[in-house]
Design a protein around this nucleic acid. Sequence first.
DNA 1: AACACACACAACCGCAAGGAG
DNA 2: TCTCCTTGCGGTTGTGTGTGT
Length: 290
Amino acid sequence: MAMPLFEIPIAMARPPCCEKVGIKKGPWTPEEDIILVSYIQEHGPGNWRSVPTNTGLLRCSKSCRLRWTNYLRPGIKRGNFTPHEESMIIHLQALLGNKWAAIASYLPQRTDNDIKNYWNTHLKKKLKKFQPSTTATDQFASSSSAAATTYASSTENISRLLQGWMRSSLKTTKNDSNSSLVLKETTSQDKKWKAEQEDGVLISREELEFILSFENMNNVACGSTSKDACDDDPPISFLENKKKKQKADLNTNKNNNNPPLSFLEKWLLDESSAGQVEEMNQRMELSSIF
DNA sequence: AACACACACAACCGCAAGGAG
DNA sequence: TCTCCTTGCGGTTGTGTGTGT
């Protein structure tokens, strides 16, 4: 007897990724966030397909992954972009185009979605106004003083729940012989830091400072300044991405004329680049006056 | 006070890449 | 080598909030 399609057992049919019926859409509630965070705390991120099933969340796997990646993941910085971050985005966008994930790898505390939104809503507009064709009557765009939402603070609280899990998972990764990090301080005075991994991955001063500051950030998050109380490691995913990228770039550089990554980084991370953005802002303000 | 509009940000959708079997 | 599945990415849309009339 032929089996009607709608009676195919679940085990036989491939479950659709985003089932239209019974899937909740729209903003996440704090309760959903807690459920998701608790699950990830226990099982770690990944295997997103099983997350809705195992948690009972009426969300599709994509939605869960996105929520985690963009908002719940620890170490995400929210709020205003600094001039330096702004300059990096502008430079990197010019270099890489709309490769938001690649750009985000240089701004480890920011998500690709965040950077993309910031570009689309602020920087694109700013740069457009900076074009010579800009009319003098154009008003300077209002400052990007988007107030942090109250919900952002709630996600921060949720992130704090993850401190313990993150600490353990990072240590596990760090113990892996493939990712052991060797830091070398050449001169403490001028902060010329250098780091090398066994397989030659390099991190810049800026990145190292971020990594070092991460410890302080976690101390604050843990409500303690004691190193023992909250002794976290740098976000390993950042280092892994960095390593991947450098390996990929090594291959890519064989086939094109792109300058070495270290050169680009030096340029991108140059303090003067922040000054360039500030200068641009000043000129834009002047142009709005005249 | 009510409405319309603009803006910023969160979330969704579709496609592509990569991995496993 | 091929197929299927999962994940990640980028573009786009939806929603909430602020501001002007």
